[in-house]
């Protein structure tokens, strides 16, 4: 039985999905059988990040009851993943509660299941958090993102989830709140810092995962370091 980790953030724009995709690839490169689930059903981006054609079956089909797990799990860049649909009409008749079964089933086959939750604390986000063993928070080092991540942490803990720590993304501005103060107010450790890096945007434009496209970029190295830390500290 594997472990499921929900990547959650209090607000959009933290780069959570990019971290999730690259972290999954990094963990897989470290030898763990890894699956990624795009649970951001109203704002799916995993297909775009991996450069996967949206003609393939998506998690929306599973959540609407028209496909099984095997039908929608794809292979890409060393991981297996369930991408979401970007078509508005696919948002109809979704049963988000099925996400729990989906993740449970994946946990039987994979060492690590990373779940990309929607930002905020709507019902989809709560369901994604509830469906996982643990939560990894992603925030940018600014007051709005930190405040909202603190709210997400409170909710995750109330749901009885282990909060592994906080990943600070897009780090590098003189206006960033220093990491030690973020740890102080959040009451959890910052377990990874990922630099603001133009290479991330280039990867998105090209539809290639940063870790595959430019593994020597600053952000890719930071994410790989985060993956090593996660598998070491939470084997």
């Amino acid at each position: 039985m594997g472990v499921s980790v929900c990547l959650a953030s209090g607000k959009g724009g933290s780069g959570k999905s990019t971290i999730c995709a690259n972290l999954g690839v990094a963990i897989s490169q470290l030898g763990y059988k890894t699956a990624i689930v795009d649970a951001d059903v109203e704002g799916s981006s995993m297909g775009l990040i991996f450069g996967i054609d949206f003609k393939v079956p998506t998690i929306h089909e599973y959540l609407s009851g028209s496909a099984g797990v095997e039908d929608i799990v794809l292979k890409a860049d060393g991981v297996e993943l369930a991408i979401g649909s970007v078509r508005v009409e696919d948002l109809k008749d979704l049963n988000i509660e099925l996400l729990k079964n989906f993740i449970k089933e994946l946990m039987e086959k994979y060492d690590v299941v990373l779940v990309d939750a929607p930002s905020g604390l709507g019902i989809d986000a709560i369901t994604a958090i509830s469906a996982c063993d643990a939560v990894l928070l992603v925030a940018t080092p600014d007051i709005l993102s930190v405040t909202n991540s603190l709210k997400t942490k409170v909710v995750a803990e109330r749901l009885g989830k282990k909060v592994l720590g906080l990943v600070l993304n897009r780090v590098g501005s003189a206006y960033d709140i220093p990491t030690k103060y973020i740890e102080d107010i959040m009451g959890i450790k910052v377990i990874g810092e990922v630099a603001e890096d133009e290479e991330v945007k280039k990867s998105l434009v090209e539809g290639k995962v940063l870790l595959m496209r430019n593994p020597s970029s600053k952000a890719a190295k930071d994410i790989f370091k985060l993956a090593e830390k996660l598998v070491l500290e939470y084997p």
């Binding site: 007051i143 930190v146 405040t147 603190l150 709210k151 942490k153 409170v154 103060y181 102080d184 107010i185 009451g187």
Partner: peptide, 29 residues
């Protein structure tokens, strides 16, 4: 508590510092 910190930040304080705090940390902050 986390709820206290959230309240401070939601009320638009620039930061929330919890007491007790040691002197070096306070000066640094």
């Amino acid at each position: 508590s986390d709820e206290d910190k959230i309240k401070s930040l939601d009320e638009q304080a620039d930061w929330h510092i919890s007491k007790p705090i040691d002197k070096d940390k306070l000066l640094d902050m």
